[in-house]
Nucleic acid binder design. Sequence first.
DNA 1: TTTGAACTTTTGCACGCGCAAAAGAAATGG
DNA 2: CCATTTCTTTTGCGCGTGCAAAAGTTCAAA
Lengths: 341, 341
Amino acid sequence: MTGRKIRTMEEFAEVSGISRPTISKYFYDPESVRQSSRARIESALEKYDYRPNIFAINQNRKLTKTIGILVPYLADPFFAEIVRLIERQCISAGFWPIVFSAHGQVELENNALATLQSLRPAGALIAPLGRSSDPETVQRFTEEVPTVVFDSNLTVGKAFVGSNNFQSIPLIVEYLCRTGEPPCFLEMPPVNPNATKRRDAFVTAMERLGLEPRIVRVAGSDWDFERIGYEEGMRLIDERALSTNTVLCSNDRLAIGLIAAAYQKGLRVGRGPGCAIRVAGHDDHPFSQFTCPPLTTVSQDYRAIAKRSVEVLFELIDGIEPTGERPEELFEGRLVLRLSA
Amino acid sequence: MTGRKIRTMEEFAEVSGISRPTISKYFYDPESVRQSSRARIESALEKYDYRPNIFAINQNRKLTKTIGILVPYLADPFFAEIVRLIERQCISAGFWPIVFSAHGQVELENNALATLQSLRPAGALIAPLGRSSDPETVQRFTEEVPTVVFDSNLTVGKAFVGSNNFQSIPLIVEYLCRTGEPPCFLEMPPVNPNATKRRDAFVTAMERLGLEPRIVRVAGSDWDFERIGYEEGMRLIDERALSTNTVLCSNDRLAIGLIAAAYQKGLRVGRGPGCAIRVAGHDDHPFSQFTCPPLTTVSQDYRAIAKRSVEVLFELIDGIEPTGERPEELFEGRLVLRLSA
DNA sequence: TTTGAACTTTTGCACGCGCAAAAGAAATGG
DNA sequence: CCATTTCTTTTGCGCGTGCAAAAGTTCAAA
């Protein structure tokens, strides 16, 4: 890294001895120029510190290399993890992922969408807030940029990739019924379609087993699930409002809060003798294996969801539009038996 | 939202009846134009859906409204939370935060730095990987863009904002010594300066109390701290290698893993009678209150760190350079007494 | 080995993208 | 009437893209 500062492609063309249009081609796709040219460019790149101006590039190119990722709440370990996987995929495919979080608020989601759109990304992967999303804004966004929706299935975008709640919930319901008292369902705040789908799946599963589905609604409408699970747990235990010793939580974060409440109240959690309550979750989020006891849950297939979302988006970007219905790819959950239920 | 699509500022100037330069001024700072002009522009904005082209703006303006945020590992709840706070601050000040995560890898950190730099941000808030960072790359970055470093104090950038490990660690060490057996120190993988600072602070604190500082080094060099804490905990318990019943972990994530290991091994964690081991952490990260038992720890002042980092950056952006030494602002930890120690 | 036709890649040039900045003139407001 | 604010005009930011001409490459035939 020596030599004078290079500011423009023109200057870089001079010092590298290659014409500017060719340099331009090179930066779009290094494969698209002759080997000898590429070698000369790259050796010049080692001597001079030059990077094309992103803004000038994007202003003129039809297709950007930017990919927008939007999640409802990045501090949620589920999203943190899935974003991590998605980013990795994008980077290794030569794209530039940019992450936005709505932090649970519509205004921020709309804001992020607007910012994202003005970045003119090649495509976007979005997990909308869900219920509190502003449908019009999301809709308008998806009309402008090729979008794959994941996790939370608003019926917008070109495709959806997520988990099959109607497979995963019955899986754990049947397990719980087979091995002990039938569960009641601790319902997460209905922030998105998953919430209601999981509840409905629970009802169906229980009825199919000839059992009465008992649902416990929780107060709160934000993303502070551990707290909600904890507070609701404290209340339920205090008021002896639990009609069964088994609780299926609609997600792991809720379960973590509930387990904390049980601990606080001296209720032993688990499926062994001497245990007062069984707690199960849904998602197998990154920290669920470290609860005490470790959480029995249904995993979401993080890798598959991330991988497939990105694949579908790349197909969209390459102009491969899905024919017929808007495709919805649902991955199956896997039972993760640990000690809490 | 009616009328034809507006594509350029020129067109928008036409339909709003205001000249283009004035419109330009408005978008840079709505306060900078006369009330009556502002009103006319804003009423036009309601009728026509127009947003200036980001790329054209940034290409020409010296000062962007973009602010880069870089953290080493976004799936770490500590960083997720602090990023959330920082983003909020930036947005409410009219800036556009863009978040990057190094995902624990140098190449990705360098990559993010390069991408960020080419976005020509007004400033950046970065928490470097630390030990594995590429000093040259980080250094070069900070020379080009006004940078505040937080959490992990590499001696680059115009300022540092973080926690005072030499205050927080003694705080909890003294508490632990006062209320039971002196602790040993479960050392996090030395991924960044905090790791070694906390260890040194532990040694100093113990020596000041006339006690022998015992350090337990853990294997692993990644950011998978819960797993590391768990595996190391299992090993320590199996081998009866713990010389004391009290363990101070250099961060909460490690402690969460250790508590899980203790649970697995049937060791009751806490400070009450019948407890076999006391575990304490550092950070008070968002989920520490939901461990079983809830984690005794020292809090980092998230809000203060986020707030002050952003403030200092804004001062830098406004041209207020710190005089004299590169300032380092350290916030104090607060003892958070819960049940684990 | 040389030649030459057929291809492929590179070059030089000109134009355009949407906007900022600057400067002087004109309009507005109190 | 003078101080602000706005308008008009010009120049330029750094690069993509299309075009025709030039240079390079390949390969079979001489």
